[in-house]
């Protein structure tokens, strides 16, 4: 039952994900300064910000956090980043490719 509700909630959240423009989102991710802490590929930065891509948190949670962060992140209010821009950024995050597994990269195995 709990599992069923969780699926419902999750799919409800994803259902609200607007279709954004990933290309535009990529530009906004740089120009709005997201890259500063999260890296230009949203791969995360040591000590600055977590990795965000390729599977970002649900869109509703993403928006909520960006608007009113609970941690160290500076807030991006609707006055400086529109909802539309956020959905483009979200589309960029979702479109990032999954990297090869570390196990297959020799340099990461010694």
């Amino acid at each position: 039952m709990r599992w069923f509700i969780a699926v419902l909630i999750t799919s409800a959240l994803y259902a609200q994900t607007p279709a954004g423009n990933a290309q535009k989102g990529k530009q906004l991710f740089q120009s709005d300064g997201c890259y500063q802490c999260h890296g230009r590929e949203a791969q995360g930065g040591p000590g600055t910000g977590p990795r965000l891509a390729p599977k970002p948190i649900a869109f509703a949670n993403f928006t909520k956090y960006v608007r009113h962060p609970a941690g160290q992140m500076p807030p991006y209010t609707a006055r400086v980043v529109s909802d539309e821009d956020l959905s483009d950024i979200y589309a960029f995050l979702s479109s990032q490719p999954q990297p090869p597994p570390a196990k297959t990269i020799p340099l990461l195995n010694d």
């Binding site: 890296g39 230009r40 590929e41 791969q43 995360g44 930065g45 040591p46 990795r51 891509a53 990297p99 090869p100 597994p101 570390a102 990269i105 340099l107 990461l108 195995n109 010694d110």
Partner: peptide
Amino acid sequence: ARTEAAYGWDASPISTSRVAAELWA
């Protein structure tokens, strides 16, 4: 850590984890 290091592996500008790994080798 190694899994995280792989994200952005082929990025340009070059990721700092890649710099560390190339140097280590």
